[in-house]
Amino acid sequence: MTRRTKLPITLLEHQDPFTSEWIEQQANGAERVLACDFYISGAEHAEPVTGDTVSVAS
């Protein structure tokens, strides 16, 4: 079963570098931002999004 109300998806490619603050701005008032498979290209190594977000990987 898929959920009745689909959540909007935003593709943020070619907009490096990402910062926690910048990503939170994308929430635009939403209760939460769900960053999926959020590999940060060009970074020294892939890092989890940190800051005020809660990381599944932490």
């Binding site: 998806i9 935003t10 593709l11 490619e13």
Partner: peptide, 30 residues
């Protein structure tokens, strides 16, 4: 399920990004 008042963001469009965003958003079934 995540709350309706949520947004999903991804940074690239490979298989895993397409599938994970689809699952979380409800566009794809689990």
């Amino acid at each position: 399920e995540e709350p309706d008042d949520s947004v999903v963001i991804i940074s690239h469009t490979d298989c895993d990004s397409v599938l994970s965003s689809g699952i979380v958003s409800g566009e794809l079934p689990p």
